[in-house]
Computed example of a mutant assay.
Amino acid sequence: MRILIHARNSRLYEPKDRVRLMNLLRNLGLGIINVRVASSHVEIDVNSDDLDKLALIVSEAVGPVLSIVNLSNENKPNDPFRAFVFLFNEERFWEAHEVLEPTWRVSRDVNVQGLIVAAASFVKIQENYVESFLKLAKRALGMITVNRIDCIDTLKFKEELRASLSTLKPFKARCIA
Results as ranks from 00 to 15, higher is better:
residue 98 E to G: 03
residue 78 N to F: 11
residue 37 V to D: 00
residue 106 V to Q: 14
residue 70 N to F: 10
residue 54 L to A: 08
residue 89 N to Y: 08
residue 75 N to G: 01
residue 32 I to H: 07
residue 99 V to S: 00
residue 46 V to G: 02
residue 64 P to L: 14
residue 30 L to K: 01
residue 67 S to F: 06
residue 122 F to S: 02
residue 101 E to T: 10
residue 51 L to W: 09
residue 92 R to E: 14
residue 119 A to F: 04
residue 108 R to Q: 15
residue 111 N to F: 05
residue 119 A to M: 05
residue 95 E to P: 04
residue 60 E to S: 13
residue 100 L to Y: 02
residue 100 L to G: 06
residue 119 A to Y: 02
residue 58 V to P: 03
residue 115 L to T: 08
residue 38 A to T: 05
residue 32 I to W: 08
residue 37 V to Y: 02
residue 33 I to E: 11
residue 101 E to R: 13
residue 90 E to K: 13
residue 53 K to A: 13
residue 127 E to D: 10
residue 25 L to A: 06
residue 25 L to M: 10
residue 45 D to P: 00
residue 63 G to P: 07
residue 125 I to E: 03
residue 125 I to K: 10
residue 96 A to I: 09
residue 78 N to H: 04
residue 79 D to T: 11
residue 102 P to G: 06
residue 129 Y to P: 00
residue 80 P to D: 08
residue 30 L to C: 10
residue 110 V to G: 03
residue 53 K to T: 15
residue 87 L to F: 05
residue 118 A to T: 02
residue 103 T to W: 08
residue 70 N to I: 07
residue 58 V to W: 02
residue 52 D to L: 13
residue 28 L to T: 05
residue 52 D to H: 10
residue 108 R to P: 10
residue 57 I to R: 01
residue 67 S to D: 14
residue 91 E to N: 12
residue 64 P to H: 08
residue 70 N to V: 04
residue 91 E to H: 05
residue 102 P to N: 09
residue 55 A to T: 14
residue 51 L to C: 14
residue 70 N to G: 09
residue 50 D to K: 06
residue 111 N to W: 02
residue 59 S to L: 08
